[in-house]
Design a protein around this nucleic acid. Structure first.
Lengths: 337, 337
DNA sequence: TTGTAGGCGTTATCAG
DNA sequence: CTGATAACGCCTACAA
């Protein structure tokens, strides 16, 4: 079933059918109706590949996700779902590419096969080879997260440094003097993962500014690691009275460690950080924390990308989001001297 | 940069370049090398749309996911990640379509636009209009989950009825007489969601067979609902000494309710069901439960789909998985008469 | 308001 | 072993 078949049945030329469909030139109302009737009757739908070939665009966006072997976190998955949803609202489809490292068949296909009009990249490292490849490929792209040298690129990110800094200040105001940052995993830090690096920098800098004792510890993305990590902190740094974290997956373990140690939050220990609202409100007690607004970030990312696709010469834009730190019940005055 | 450009530079015809790339007919070693050199030099990659148009296939699979508004559960997201990964291993890409209900632009595009060679559908209802549409479209597809009348279709599913039945039997053996099933949400049950319906049927039937008192309660997919739901059970059905569940998202709330009520597991209360290993081992204490092997299911689904794409006339196959119920520490003898 | 014809980049069928 | 050339299905000047 193709456009020629429709044209033949209606008794017009293929271009008339095409124009009737696209509306790019006037077609008499009568013809349009007959065409629509036949289309409905035969159940015709234009062939996407042919259209893409002729138009030079696919109406498809690429989304590069971490490989499944690296268990996807909750936030990452929210991004995926939201990006797909937002794209759908603009009548665009999303092609997924699970690409971790450097050269990768899937990433290759997406980038060089003209299968997509643009790419969204997530989980950005401070120095990220994928960004370099995309840049030199000329394909429009935006990143969720941003590289260190991000001047000429499009991105949307959460201001981890700033938010963590504000968390530390909050703890300082409450009288805490010994604090710890529960960061993401060793591997992520070693690879230069943006949020981990920036959270760490903001944490250490601000804590130092307030004359606090600050420890920065890595923790794998799962409850068991959270438990182990927190118990080690309690044992080796007994002075610590408050923790800041960006590691959502570790939270259930932290919760258990707190409970095992008989520590009441916030009376004996304060806890805060950058944590998706959904998880923050389910914690016991609810966490004072800044949200990771995945939906909003996805919307912005798609907008920026479509904007660049529509006008590749448009100046690069970006958005550094600083969601409010919502005061809940997990931070309180320091009770120890 | 297209194949003609390469041909011109090398001084051969376009078909020779094409065949050198595909290997579908012999090309002299010397020309192959010259072609490869030029390709490497100019960074040529075939245009996917043109190839799809000429070949009549896209090397792309469609994956229909629930819309983001329905927060995706952990298991669903594992499926997505795994399907993408498996497809990538077969050099196929995955196009996502967030489609909830019936007629839906995105679903439409994927099904009728020849954008994909086949479709994987998840979150199947006992009677599912999407399955009907796909069936009549003639597009190859496989479902993760299966409709009530699934004779002629390809699917892979977990045997919820059988597994839940075995869980109940296990509880009966331990002397429990009053049991409850913590099912998925009201809405899901009302819409005829396969796992919820089959779990319920298997539960009630088996419990009745053992002469047990059985209650089947719905619970939304989040910790808060799990907490509320479980507290209501404790209050209104004080006889109940064991619960079976397929609702993973509610587990943290159940955990808290148990703790609040001062109930020790498994001494005072037993808990089991169909729960992804990852969550089962993190529960306190680790749960006696059957895994949901998302990775394996994804692998099977992709295999079945590619098989059908390769040979549309092949007889329908399916796989009903019954993973073992791993005995951990959450079930024990009933202490109450 | 409509028709004709060329092009998008590949693959594949004929010939040589 | 290699070259022409016709599809694949759609879009869009250019003409009428």
């Amino acid at each position: 079933m193709n456009i020629g078949e429709i044209a033949k049945r209606v008794g017009v030329s293929r271009s008339t059918v095409s124009y009737a469909l696209s509306g790019k030139r006037p077609v008499s109302a009568a013809t349009v109706r007959r065409i629509n009737d036949v289309i409905a009757e035969l159940g015709y739908r234009p062939n996407a590949s042919a259209r893409a070939l002729a138009e030079g665009r696919t109406r498809t966006l690429g989304l590069v996700i971490p490989p499944a072997s690296t268990r996807l976190t909750d936030v990452q998955l929210s991004f995926v779902a939201s990006v797909v949803e937002v794209a759908a609202a603009y009548d665009h489809d999303v092609l997924l590419s699970p690409s971790g490292g450097d050269h990768d068949r899937s990433f290759d296909r997406v980038v060089t096969g003209r299968r997509v009009d643009g790419v969204i990249l997530m989980e950005i490292l401070l120095r990220d080879p994928r960004v370099d490849r995309l840049t030199s490929s000329g394909l429009p792209f935006v990143t969720i997260g941003h590289v260190a040298d991000s001047g000429a690129s499009r991105w949307v990110d959460v201001d981890y440094a700033g938010l963590i800094s504000r968390c530390v200040r909050h703890l300082a105001d409450l009288g805490h003097e010994h604090v710890v940052l529960i960061n993401r995993s060793d591997e992520l830090v070693a690879s230069g993962y943006g949020p981990a690096m920036r959270a760490s920098a903001g944490f250490l800098e601000t804590a130092e500014g307030f004359g606090m004792t600050a420890h920065d510890v890595c923790c794998a993305d799962d409850p068991a690691a959270g438990l182990a990590c927190f118990e080690e902190i309690l044992e080796r740094r007994p002075d610590v009275t408050a923790a800041v974290t960006i590691n959502e997956a570790a939270l259930p373990g932290v919760q258990r460690a707190l409970h095992r140690a008989g520590l009441d939050v916030p009376r004996d220990f304060s806890l805060t950080g950058v944590i998706a609202d959904r998880l923050a409100v389910d914690f016991h007690p609810p966490l004072t924390a800044a949200d990771v607004p995945a939906g909003q970030m996805a919307q912005l990312a798609v907008d920026l990308l479509l904007e660049q696709i529509a006008d590749p010469s448009a100046p690069p834009r970006h958005a550094l989001l600083a969601p409010p730190i919502t005061l809940r019940s997990s931070t309180g005055a320091c009770r120890r001297s």
